[in-house]
Structures are given as structure tokens and as C-alpha cells.
């Protein structure tokens, strides 16, 4: 990696008080993400990976440390950093077209321009013909396609994705992973992608940032150089899967007092 990082986290930490207890959600960590990179934050539930993502989005303020994008301090949300939610977060009172137009029009691009951008993105995610549907009329997979189109229509520098396919069935999930990769290969925007699926991370990422739970911190950064689209069943992928699964599970076992150690040894990957 060369040049200035797109996003730089320096000593970023998050702790808060709940029920008179200090909770360390995230211990101070450093992370650099470069322009055009696809980075996955991988870790078990409660490891603070979503907290880190929300801090980059500007929705959560760090308790310590700083986050910069292009050398500028991140203090609040900005359309330069688009966020895709696991729960889709589509506006249910707007049609698909209106949802995707929302970003460009709220930024004052004008109706015609906003609609043009929206129609382009709707076509890119394969939802032509659904422009006038409401979110309640769409399946989960289609909803998340709208979610992706809506953020992409804003032409953000960085796409933040918070377990975007976590609520989908595994078949839909695979299709959306493939399609997201396709979109990204066409337009290499920087992506920071949170997941707890080792397979998803291996399939998508340039670099995998493995995080541990309570307090959250980075335990390993694993670069993947294999060309895309990747076959999860080839030798290298299987070896990588074993390695990463080991790393992630070690965290789960450590924090749960070994109670599920036996189960996870048989069952492979633990959610």
C-alpha cells in the first residue's frame, strides 16, 4: 500500500457506562484503509466492529483517538461516507425510485439529475421495473439491492456496510455477494464491510481485519491476493478458512469460558 490512507484511525476507542459498570466496547486501535480497497471487519458478535463502522460513519463519537478521511477529521455523518444497514433502513413511505433519489435530491442536485442518477443505480442493481414499488412489496434481497443503490447514487468516496447480507437466506446472500463484487469491480470505491462470516470475508475482501470481543481490538490483519471471483472450495481458500476460523473461534472460546469449545470444534464456524 502506498500514499496517504483514505481513512486513518488513530487510537480510536469507545467505552461507556451502563448499570454503573464501565463497558469497554472498543480498546484503542489503529487502522488504515486505502483508496479503492475492499476491507472486511471480521469478528464475533459484540466485538465492536459495528461500533467502529459507525464511528467512521460519524454516527458514534469515539471516546478517545481520532478518525480522519483524506486528512480531514470525521466529526459527523456525511454523504461522502454512505452506510448500508443490515436492516435495510429504506424509507417505507417512499417508492424504490424515491428512496434511491433521496440522497441526490437532499443534497440539492435537482430533480432531473437526481432521478437520472437513481434510475442508473436501480438498473445497475437489477431492479428495473420496480421503480414504483414500495419497500413493503419487495423481498429481503431486493430491499438490500435498493439499500445499495440508494447509497451508490450519492457517489460516496467510502461505502460502509454493516452486515448488509446478515438477514438474508444463504442463497440470496451468495447472489448479492457476487453482485456487490461486480458493482465494485466496475467502480472501485473504497468499501469497509462488517461481517461475522469467514466465507463472506474471504470471498470479498482485499484485507480482512480480524477483531476480538470485549474489549474489541484488532487481533490480525490478513491480506488476500487471490484473483476474483474466488472459489471458496480451492486449496488456498480452505486453508485460509481454517486459519481465520481458528482466529475467530479462539476469541469466542476465550470470552465464553470454554463452554462452547467442544461444540465449535465439531461445528466449524461459530456465529
Amino acid at each position: 500500500m502506498m500514499g496517504e490512507p483514505k481513512i486513518r484511525a488513530r487510537g480510536v476507542a469507545k467505552h461507556y457506562r451502563a448499570n454503573n459498570l464501565d463497558v469497554r466496547a472498543l480498546d484503542p486501535l489503529d487502522l488504515e484503509i486505502y483508496e479503492g480497497e475492499f476491507v472486511c471487519l471480521l469478528g464475533p458478535s459484540g466485538c465492536g466492529k459495528s461500533t467502529l463502522l459507525r464511528m467512521v460513519a460519524g454516527l458514534v463519537t469515539p471516546s478517545a483517538g481520532t478518525l480522519h478521511m483524506d486528512g480531514r477529521l470525521i466529526t459527523r455523518p456525511s454523504p461522502e461516507r454512505g452506510l448500508v444497514f443490515q436492516e435495510y433502513a429504506l424509507f417505507p413511505w417512499m417508492t424504490v425510485l424515491r428512496n434511491v433519489m433521496y440522497g441526490p435530491s437532499v443534497r440539492g442536485l435537482g430533480r432531473a439529475k437526481a432521478e437520472q442518477l437513481a434510475r442508473d443505480q436501480i438498473a445497475r442493481v437489477g431492479l428495473e421495473g420496480f421503480e414504483n414499488h414500495f419497500p413493503s412489496q419487495l423481498s429481503g434481497g431486493m430491499k438490500q439491492r435498493v439499500g445499495i443503490a440508494r447509497v451508490w447514487a450519492n457517489q460516496p468516496d467510502v461505502l460502509l456496510m454493516d452486515e448488509p447480507f446478515g438477514a438474508l437466506d444463504s442463497i440470496t446472500r451468495n447472489v448479492l455477494q457476487r453482485d456487490l463484487l461486480g458493482l465494485w469491480m466496475q467502480e472501485r470505491r473504497t468499501i469497509l464491510f462488517v461481517t461475522h462470516s469467514v466465507e463472506e470475508a474471504i470471498y470479498l475482501a482485499d484485507r480482512i481485519v480480524v477483531m476480538s470481543a470485549r474489549p474489541g481490538r484488532i487481533t490480525a490483519i490478513v491480506p488476500i491476493d487471490a484473483p476474483r471471483p474466488r472459489n471458496l472450495l480451492d486449496q488456498d481458500s480452505i486453508a485460509l478458512r481454517a486459519h481465520l476460523t481458528g482466529l475467530v473461534e479462539a476469541q469466542v472460546i476465550a470470552t465464553s469460558g470454554g463452554r462452547i469449545a467442544a461444540k465449535s470444534a465439531v461445528g466449524g464456524y461459530v456465529e
Binding site: 460513519a57 455523518p77 452506510l83 444497514f85 424509507f91 413511505w93 440522497g103 437532499v106
Partner: peptide, 27 residues
């Protein structure tokens, strides 16, 4: 809150949130 967060990250100003998001959502 999800609608508000989505709107903020899509570029909605804090003063627009009430009219653009909260009102239709509360309708």
C-alpha cells in the same frame, strides 16, 4: 432511529430531519 441515521448518512441536514423523515414516519 434507523431512518434518522440513514437520512443523516445520506446527507440530510439536522434541521431537515424533522420534516423529511420524522413527520412521514410518524404519519
Amino acid at each position: 432511529k434507523l431512518f434518522i441515521e440513514a437520512a443523516l448518512t445520506l446527507g440530510t441536514g439536522p434541521r431537515q430531519i424533522l420534516w423529511r423523515i420524522v413527520l412521514p414516519a410518524a404519519m
